[in-house]
Amino acid sequence: MNKLHLISVIVILILAFPVMVLVYYGFGPKLDPLGYGPSVISSVMLTVVSSAIASLVLVILLTPVAYYLARHKSPVLETVADIPASIPHPIIGICLLLINSNITPIGVFLHSVGIDFFNTMLGLVSALTIISAPIYLKSLQPFYISMERGPEIYAMSFGASEFSAFFNVVLPNSFRGILGAYLISMSRSMSEFGSVSIIAYAILQYPFYGVSPAPVLIYQYYSFYGLGPALTSSALMVVVGILLMIALRIVEKQGKDDRILY
């Protein structure tokens, strides 16, 4: 066996070892019915749905931005876009609370039109969107950097502006790249604890009334009951995360096959 391959396997197994132990005990000797009860299922559902929506928002808002940053040097914009990745995540929760509070004029305005972030789906999705934005950008930018520029230039020589070339030429050929970045940012959102524990500890809206996001619920279980139900519910979240990663690998594999044709 190639030595580098051997080292890679060993290091990755060491990194994955704690999670493998957790899955073994969570579904095996320490299986606790509370850990896969209705509360946990609702919580996992809330986490998956809110993460999926947040990533969809990122696709709409940040796909043109990722393309722009891949084609133009803009250190200022890139630095600003990286801010959520470089600060402790509870700060994002506090930022959203501040913006939505009566301390700020914008908070007063938002309340006057009935927009509330605290313990709402909107607040949860907003926090997840901000947190996973740098991940989405960093995942999609290399796709656009490696994309052949010929078709865009060809379109522009017919009179298409850069904006028009993006929508008519680049975007229709970006499906795999966008889907890959979507899944990466969604998996990042699903693991978010810091900001959601502040802005959306428990959702107080239909259809998730009283439901906490999975990372918050797991922390609650650990705080109240110790390892027991926390282990099983954690193992369940690990399985959901692995399913998402498998989907990502499939997309990446198909993307590589497509690129040969492209």
Binding site: Y154, S157, Y262
Partner: peptide, 16 residues
């Protein structure tokens, strides 16, 4: 480019 009315064609000039 888009205002020149000059079309450039090379190996990569096609819309896949």
């Amino acid at each position: 480019i888009y205002k020149r009315k000059v079309v450039l064609t090379n190996y990569t000039s096609y819309i896949p």
